[in-house]
Design a protein around this nucleic acid. Structure first.
Lengths: 173, 173, 173, 173
DNA sequence: AATGAATGAGGGTTCATTCAT
DNA sequence: AATGAATGAACCCTCATTCAT
């Protein structure tokens, strides 16, 4: 990955996250990256290729965020870590996460698959803790973290740390 | 509102909801509406005007959905009705709701304001029921139903009726 | 000529004079006239018809301006009146004259014909006054007054009264 | 300046001069230049940018035409050269000059500034020759050359060489 | 690897004009 | 006589993409 390729990816991530995929032109990306427009196509084939390159780079970020939870054996810890997940997001990754949420709507990219391991870990945890409907509990918690992320990234007035504390108490953690 | 104006609005709603605002061209709208492209601009000024016309029409749908909850005095009923809200959505309004969620991301339209009355009604209800942190409880519930709506409209595998039943039990309703 | 027809003509004259014929849309004319756009076409057939209607109305203004000069028998008076012509222009006719000059360039309308009677009257006058080349003198004077009108209407810094005085002296009037 | 850029400029000059700025579409320019329409915007930003590019190219033509007069020290020569100026115009620059005159009306571009050096040179010359009102004389002569140019470019029946001879005699040159 | 010229299709929008009422 | 809805062509301009260098 050359220096210019990275510049392009960074610029594209930034713009796609801010304006959306369709509203961002390749010329804007090139300009922000300080690169000729042609180079984008040399390296990524077409605009869509550029998008997938960004998503591929980001895929790992997601995995490292999940792996710590999924590998956890203590059920209470699994739940705690899930709830606290949103607060673990680095500010420098803000754009990346915003893009993820945006694309779910703009390009109807389904994220169920990516969430599957987390869902299973949670189901397992709730089962061990003798909750009545562990699957539902897991799904509800996923709904929660999705909503939290969504709220934070959209700049809602919601206070995330407060909300996290509140939820931890609710789950007696 | 002439017949053709309505045709345009319907076509635009449909396309904006499916493809997104930026990815939908006015020519596509005109074609689907069976109308000359120029007519869109005669009636709505520009593409953005068309969007706002749709949003204005939909504003009422939102209000009628909320009014029943906000007017309710029985606290348990307020919560129940909130939880059951998503199931009250008419299939014919599917596009409208999808557009609402999509626009929150595509155009960064903030929906906090619209949710305010609901939030206050819920806070009130939780207070009457002696919950410890009524404001937090209200916010959490809104997070849940927002997440549910989001999941359903994105075509997630989540089963909404099941989830509603689960939530009702959780809130002892 | 109904009241609305006149309103249209006045609006069109004003706009054609200010913005030019091509840069003025029929919709702008209708708006300024406070009239539906369709009415323009009912009355004047098409945009060009509107233009010719304006020119026809103005034709008389030109004639009345010339007739006083052409009818004059005293040669010195012919020349004096020609020189003083520009100062005789009513401020309310400003738009009309501006349009005349504009159209000469925008639509390549030749005004030689209209000037012919004036040219002959001047030639005659100079001949009576024993000028060596009366035809040339006539043409030169027309060049001058045309240039003056042009300069004034274009908002040049030229002071017309001063220039008129100067010319009168030059021709020993 | 690439070859295609020049082709665009030439085509635009030709069309703007013939039809006027507003009546000339960028697509017509592209077609005449044998170039894709988009290229116009890549090189000149927008239609107005194209116009200013033409004017900038032509600015020099004007200067070279003036410089010979302004640099002249002999007063009689200044006046003679001014009078003869119009006849010095190259036929190949016809379009350029026509555009200049057209734009004065179509876009209300004031040319007073450009004429200022010439006016001062003439005032000076008339002063040296002890004319009574040198400033007025200068202005009148400018009116003349403006009128001459105007007449020639509009295809009036006026014979320029004859007129020039006549005027030279009048000024005893 | 990198550029910048070049393109054709399509973008949103305005235009002059027609037609039913 | 007068309106306002409706149109299709044209408008200026931007788009993603290709290609010669």
């Amino acid at each position: 990955m050359t220096e210019k390729q990275e510049k392009i990816l960074r610029a594209a991530l930034q713009l796609f996250a801010k304006e959306g995929y369709h509203a961002t032109s390749t010329s804007k990306v090139a300009k922000l990256a300080g690169v000729s427009e042609g180079l984008i196509f040399r390296h990524f084939g077409n605009k869509e290729g550029l998008l997938y390159a960004i998503l591929a780079v980001g895929e790992n970020k997601m995995k490292t965020l999940f792996v710590d939870i999924v590998m956890e054996s203590e059920p209470k810890q699994v739940i705690r870590k899930t709830i606290e997940m949103t607060s673990k997001i680095d500010v420098s990754d803000y754009d990346f996460w915003k893009l993820q949420f945006k694309l779910k709507w703009e390009l109807e990219i389904n994220s169920d698959k990516k969430m599957e391991p987390l869902k299973m870990a949670l189901t397992n945890a709730f089962q061990k803790l003798k909750y009545e409907s562990p699957k539902m509990e897991a799904q509800l918690l996923i709904l929660f973290i999705d909503g939290m992320g969504s709220a934070v990234l959209k700049g809602s007035s919601l206070n995330p740390t407060e909300m996290i504390q509140f939820l931890l108490r609710k789950y007696e953690l």
